[in-house]
Write a protein that binds this DNA or RNA. Structure first.
Lengths: 262, 262
DNA sequence: CGTCTCCTTGAGGCAATTCAAAAACCGTGG
DNA sequence: CCACGGTTTTTGAATTGCCTCAAGGAGACG
């Protein structure tokens, strides 16, 4: 009952205090597993024993309401890491949209490693912060945006993943079905279709087959989406996460901003 | 480079490796600050230098869209900790609904402490996991639920905070305005009002003044909300978060569930 | 080439919004 | 304690954006 790759994992404890462990390295030591399209990697409510790093393919992450409605809370793309910040159970089901390759690592052990390795600790926090940011963005989308804005936002969100420097038209694949998009955007299939059609008619978007998308005018599309300009949005600030650690400046006792008092 | 309050804080480094530091303890060493109703603790886009623990009062956490729409992504109640999992900027504005008392602690230093203290590390992860869980829940609510279900869910969510063992009718305060609720639930003021009125007419809810709520039939309300039974819901599993950190048992190499292959 | 599934478009209905006005609440000052 | 003005909440009527229901079209696969 031992993983074929666990020999290399055993190297971690020795090197951990000084080594610059990253999630990439930690997961890289594990065997590649496969999950076929339509099958689940884990289910909502299961004991959350492992974290996962996606190698290839696409996962849909969803919860089911008592009466059967499905809410897709996110998608997991290659490079994404799942399951770092749960209590003891998975909060959603992770199901393969396409055939998926991934690696798993025991959560407890991962967090134990992080205790000894600031680099890894930092890396984990960075991933979790990204998840939280995505969730925030989605709450804004679902709570405030119209159907067309949601679809436009969704397209831009995917465009962003392929890199911003891209030449126009920006092109990418959307392997998920219209139903997946609908359940993610809080709309129906038909409404998603109509929104896409409108964007096509406006000359902002075109498609090749069902899954290949071209964005001909990202800037204009951003206005459609209720976002700031595409280039400026996400992130308006550089990404290097937390600045270098140093001691804090003196506590000034300044009232701070906006009505602080002691 | 010395904190005014840092005399006590300086004790941390020495004791950290063995000490059972918790967020409660760490924040407890800091001065209590005040923020008056209507003022902000921090703004979206500000450099996220500090984390905050709420002592008393209520904060609304929101983002503003370019055209002025406001999305409230959450509320912060006494005991809640804010700002643990951001990149380098705050993702939302935190504004006092009522007068608020809170303590702040520099994020960098907090994470540095966590590196040395598994207890604290664990505590931080638990809080972040809670944030993520709340965000998930909200995405489901905003994406899939009707107006009445959203309002019912909101009331139950607040009831849950006062403790579940409560005798019926469960009573609690909702210090925020109807507009806050609306912007949180992705509805308009009027729709929130109408939904509350319906729940009152159904005998499930009553109110005293504008902010005091009584739930006369939580179980029935739960069905209204598209949740499982109130007692069973949230959390169906015990809360003690992650089990104590230790090395993992032997890797079992079981293929897991759902179509995994090597 | 046929079948199945998924996608797209159209017509009509409904839940939530918008616009409007009355009622309740709150703090203030008499 | 009560009267008053401003704010927030509640209710009503009309509108609309999205959903539902329905049918036709396109793509995927054996």
């Amino acid at each position: 009952m031992v993983y074929s790759a666990s020999a290399s994992v055993d190297h971690f404890p020795g090197a951990s205090h000084q080594a610059k462990l990253t999630l990439e390295i930690v997961f890289g030591s594990r065997v590649l597993e496969f999950c076929h399209a339509g099958h689940s990697v884990f289910w909502e409510g299961d004991v959350a024993s492992d974290a996962f790093m996606i190698g290839e393919g696409l996962l849909r992450l969803y919860r089911i309401l008592p009466d059967g409605r499905r809410a897709i809370t996110g998608f997991a793309f290659p490079g994404d890491v799942l399951g770092l910040a749960f209590h003891d159970r998975y909060l959603y089901t992770a199901e393969a949209v396409t055939d998926v390759r991934l690696r798993r690592f025991p959560r407890r052990r991962l967090h134990a490693l992080a205790t000894d390795c600031p680099y890894l600790h930092h890396d984990i926090l960075r991933v979790i912060a990204g998840e939280l940011e995505a969730a925030q963005e989605q709450m804004v989308l679902l709570g405030q945006k119209s159907a067309e804005e949601r679809v436009a936002s969704f397209l831009l969100m995917n465009a962003r993943r392929v890199g911003k420097g891209q030449a126009v038209p920006i092109s990418f694949d959307l392997p998920m079905t219209r139903l997946d998009m609908a359940d993610y955007l809080g709309l129906t299939i038909e409404t998603v279709c109509r929104a896409v059609t409108k964007l096509k008619q406006a000359g902002l978007v075109s498609m090749e087959g069902r899954h290949k998308v071209f964005l001909h005018n990202p800037a204009e599309l951003s206005r459609f989406a209720g976002l700031d300009d595409f280039e400026l949005a996400h992130p308006p600030w550089p990404k290097p996460a937390l600045p270098p650690v140093e001691t804090d400046p003196i506590e000034t006792g300044e009232p701070g901003r906006g009505g602080f008092h002691q």
